[in-house]
Design a protein around this nucleic acid. Structure first.
Length: 891
RNA sequence: GGGAGUAUAGCUCAGCCGGGAGAGCGUCCGCCUCACACGCGGGAGGUCAGGGGUUCGAGCCCCCUUGCGCCCACCA
């Protein structure tokens, strides 16, 4: 093998792009249907086509890439299906902004020109986010990249719409919807965000109408409202049928002031008798509850608002006025009429549009809806019966809360950018035709004057089809058959209702099966103070800046480390620096190994077989590494990415670098024993390669670079095989032995610091133990023990013969290391040190004795626990006795 | 109003099945030891929010209280 060199510090610049390009060129990301392999599929939550990568994406994509790389290495035919979303409303809003800057608007431009503009915009900004995803290292199959408005997806959307319409799941109806007066479109319930707002509660009274039709000036019905301007659309007042206070007025009417409309008093259970006066004014056209009440009592619906939330012609003299100005004016007029009782400060939740935060206006509109009652049933069943697993499991309560209270989904939007609804209206007879193609004539009357519905579909209507439309549906492609259903969906909590649930029922309805087996939710990335990243706070961190400065590996490691399932994560640069330092650490460990490889190629080093000359310390690290393989895989199986990577991190830094490398140095430098040297090198190389593989899903670039350099072969780590637990690498005995030496080294180091011995000062050490096997461990590990403990030389003996009183003693359970440090030893300090140790051991012994003399513990605790405790106690006792003895000999 | 969380070192967070409190950063001490100062070695620092209970034994299980955000909800 060729001896190569690495730079002194790891520099990700340039290297990452080069490696990524190579992966792409080799086609490693591409997955073809292959019946001999098992598929593993993830579909990307499609980012907005004109969007830019933010931390949320980085979190999301990193988790997916880890899973996909891991499964690919495990031998699965791994497909990570990429693509983008047209993001109907948010893209349209951006284009409208741009038009505004150009001094024009949607209306002036017209639909056709507007769409041209939108597509141009998409072309201009469309590639950016995918380029950015590549910077992160995402191993998506770019050859299969899709777009929610590409030809295939358009067909899928039309097909689903037509089928669901045929089945009666999609209908057009006049119902109360959430209306955004700024975006001038209807929105779904999921798009309404409730915000706490300070407002007022206006207590108002309407006069009763007397039996003879005159208006009473003594009898009034009083109630409270947060929205006085809606009184223009009042068509009743309601009381609870059980409310005896109002029985006397049964059958009477009240007069709606200003408008002078006579309103019936209706009785409805919906009214809460406890609240206020127990009377509610009913405005069926502008309140969802009132709408229901209106339906139950056949009340007229009087719409008083225009689409921009100004008052319409039904508002009489208020027509044309803004809704809030009208509110003021009406309150003023009521006050002048003496009908305003009082004004109370009131804080309440107001529905706003999650895009623009405008207060939404409930309005009755003719819209397209998806009937949810039947569709939602299989989606509920899937999660209840565990066919779809939500991780973490607590997501289920949110899931069921939504499904239990689901209402029909309003899918039409008064926008232009999106999938236009495949419905046509016959101008001659009014027939509605829903079809896959533009109909030539009306099937009912034969008329040819048809016009298509102006509206487009909710963005989420097409995203709901994403897992199968991207694989070719509605065509029965081999890909669809092979890769669907997908395996894991990784996404944030925020789109559980928007997207996850809708994919589940859409897939079940169209495909007869669920779209994925597991949904892995993650939290939000927050700033160092725990705040959300937001434009208005200006606290956003651009993942690309982080990548430019520290490399994608460091960013990825930071994002995934120390994050519990589904939890939020705080992001700060110190953590990235730590990740970068870790990258540099393994870089240098690899550099060290490379430096020590022989000039000439040695087949023993490259062989997978265990070489001759392995020592217990080699067995120890192999065994530790082997254990890591098992734990790592087990944690990935549970999707505990944070825990899994932490284990590799700890292993590599602590056990491999800080212990093993230091332990084998003397053997590497001793050219006399070639066999031992080669065995050490073999172990170094093998363990490093194995752990690099375990690390690769998290830090793909650096692991690839080192792997390639170390292998001197053209085989990428990303297509290498995932390590498996091997029985022949299991050495529990050696693990214990090396632990003994580590304990000894730690003890000596500790003592040296406490005694203030200069690090460079070497000392003679005598290991005393009455156990021959213990001495043997130290004899075998003599070289590295001496090196790590700072011994000039060491010797082993069974008794204390020849050891001076002035020696310092490091007392272990079954051995004592004596260090005659000559005049450096301060006897008083040594005594004090040992007495402290004695006190600690006394404490441990008391605890242990208490436990072991407890009859209930002995009868109830599991046998291995008791055994373990007994061993511990014995160890404490031994150490205790020896420390005591040592103290007594120090006159 | 309902639901599900969370509270552990100065900071950010781990802690699987109940059995001797952990990491990173920060801090203190000593080291530029021929892979790495983006480093090495050693240390200090915690009533595991508070109270009660179950248990031989509780950071972990049960109940109550308090703090903090989160999701859902039509109380006019």
């Amino acid at each position: 093998m060729m001896k190569k060199e690495l730079a002194k510090t790891y520099d990700p610049h340039g290297l990452e792009d080069r490696i990524y390009q190579n992966w792409e060129d080799k086609g490693y990301f591409h997955a073809e249907v292959d019946e001999t392999k098992k598929p593993f599929t993830i579909v990307i939550p499609p980012p907005n086509v004109t969007g830019r990568l933010h931390m949320g994406h980085a979190f999301d994509e990193t988790m997916q890439d880890i899973l996909i790389r891991w499964k690919r290495m495990q031998g699965y035919n791994a497909l990570w299906q990429p693509g983008c979303d047209h993001a109907s409303i948010s893209t349209e809003v951006k284009i409208i902004d741009q038009l505004k800057k150009d001094g024009t608007d949607k209306k002036t431009l017209g639909r056709e020109k507007f769409l041209e503009r939108a597509w141009a915009w998409k072309e201009e900004y469309g590639g950016i986010i995918t380029q950015q995803l590549k910077k992160l290292g995402s191993s998506c199959d770019w050859q299969r990249e899709r777009f929610t408005m590409d030809e295939g997806c358009n067909r899928a959307v039309t097909e689903v719409f037509v089928r669901m319409h045929e089945k009666g799941y999609i209908y057009k109806g006049s119902r109360i919807v959430n209306w955004c007066p700024v975006c001038k479109t209807s929105i779904s319930d999921a798009e309404v965000e409730y915000e706490e707002q300070q407002g007022h509660l206006w207590h108002i009274k309407y006069p009763m109408v007397n039996e003879d039709g005159t208006v009473s000036d003594t009898e009034f019905i009083e109630f409270a409202t947060t929205r006085p301007e809606t009184m223009l659309g009042d068509t009743a007042v309601a009381v609870n049928p059980k409310d005896e206070r109002y029985h006397k007025w049964h059958g009477r009417k009240v007069l709606l002031p200003i408008v002078n409309r006579e309103l019936p008093i209706v009785e409805d259970e919906y009214v809460d008798m406890e609240f206020g006066t127990g009377v509610v004014k009913i405005t069926p056209a502008h309140d969802p509850n009132d709408f229901e009440v209106g339906k139950r009592h056949n009340l007229p619906e009087v719409n008083v608002l225009n689409d921009d939330a100004t008052i319409n012609e039904n508002g009489g003299k208020y027509a044309g006025m803004d809704r809030y100005e009208c509110r003021k004016a009406i309150v003023k007029e009521l006050e002048e009429m003496g009908l305003l009782v009082r004004i109370e400060d009131y804080s309440h939740n107001v529905g706003t549009h999650e895009r623009c935060h405008t207060t939404v206006e409930p309005m009755i509109k003719k819209q397209w809806f998806v009937r949810m009652d039947e569709l939602i049933k299989p989606a509920v069943k899937a999660v209840k019966e565990g066919e779809i697993r939500l991780i973490p499991q607590r997501a289920e309560s949110a899931y069921f809360n939504w499904t239990d209270n689901i209402r029909d989904w309003c899918i039409s939007r008064q926008l232009w950018w999106g999938h236009r609804i495949p419905a046509w209206y016959c101008d001659d007879c009014g027939e509605i035709i829903v079809d896959r193609q533009t109909p030539a004539k009306c099937p009912k009357c034969g008329g040819t004057h048809l016009h298509q519905d102006e509206d487009v579909l909710d963005t989420w209507f097409s995203s709901a089809l994403w897992p199968f439309e991207t694989l070719g549906w509605p065509d029965e492609t081999p890909e669809l058959k092979y890769f669907f259903p997908t395996d894991v969906l990784v996404t944030g909590w925020d789109i559980l209702f928007f997207w996850v649930i809708r994919m589940i029922f859409s897939s079940y309805e169209q495909m007869g099966t669920y779209p994925f087996k597991t949904v892995l939710f993650h939290g939000l990335i927050r700033d160092e103070q725990g705040r959300k990243f937001s434009k208005s706070l200006g606290n956003g961190v651009d993942p690309l800046d982080i990548i430019a400065k520290y490399g994608a590996d460091a960013l990825r490691l930071t994002i995934v480390t120390g994050n519990d399932l589904g939890g939020d994560m705080r992001f700060y640069v110190d953590r990235v620096e730590n990740s970068r330092n870790f990258a540099n650490k393994i870089w240098n460990a690899s550099r060290f190994i490379l430096m020590n490889l022989p000039e000439e190629e040695d087949p023993v080093l490259l062989s997978p077989e265990l070489p001759a000359g392995l020592e217990p310390v080699d067995h120890w690290i192999l065994s530790r590494c082997n254990r890591l393989v098992r734990e790592e895989t087990a944690n990935l199986d549970r999707f505990e990415l944070g825990i899994a990577v932490q284990k590799v991190y700890d292993f590599l830094w602590d056990e491999f670098c800080d212990w093993y490398i230091e332990m084998v140095k003397p053997r590497l430098y001793n050219t006399d024993d070639k066999t031992s040297q080669t065995a050490a090198l073999w172990t170094l190389r093998t363990v490093l390669l194995t752990s690099l593989k375990l690390l690769h899903p998290y830090m793909p670039f650096i692991t690839e670079e080192i792997y390639m350099t170390l292998q001197d072969a053209d085989e990428s780590i990303m297509i290498s095989s995932w390590p498996e637990f091997r029985a022949d690498w299991d050495y529990p005995q050696e693990e214990r032995e090396i632990e003994t030496i580590k304990e000894a080294v730690r003890g000596v180091r500790n003592m040296r610091t406490q005694m203030n011995v200069a690090p460079s000062k070497k000392a003679q050490m005598v290991i005393v133990s009455d156990k021959e096997e213990v001495l043997e461990i130290f004899r075998t590990g003599r070289l590295f023990f001496e090196s790590l403990a700072g011994a000039s030389e060491s010797s082993c003996q069974q008794d204390k013969a020849g050891i001076p009183d002035s020696a310092v003693a490091v007392v272990l359970a079954d051995a004592t290391i004596y260090i005659p440090l000559g005049d450096l030893v301060d006897i008083a300090a040594e005594k004090e040190r040992l007495q402290k140790e004695l006190k600690r051991l006394e404490g441990e012994l008391t605890r242990s004795e208490k436990m072991l003399s407890n009859e209930k513990f002995l009868s109830k605790a599991p046998a291995d626990k008791i055994e373990e405790e007994k061993e511990k106690q014995q160890k404490y006792r031994q150490t205790y006795e020896q420390v005591k003895e040592r103290l007594s000999t120090m006159s």
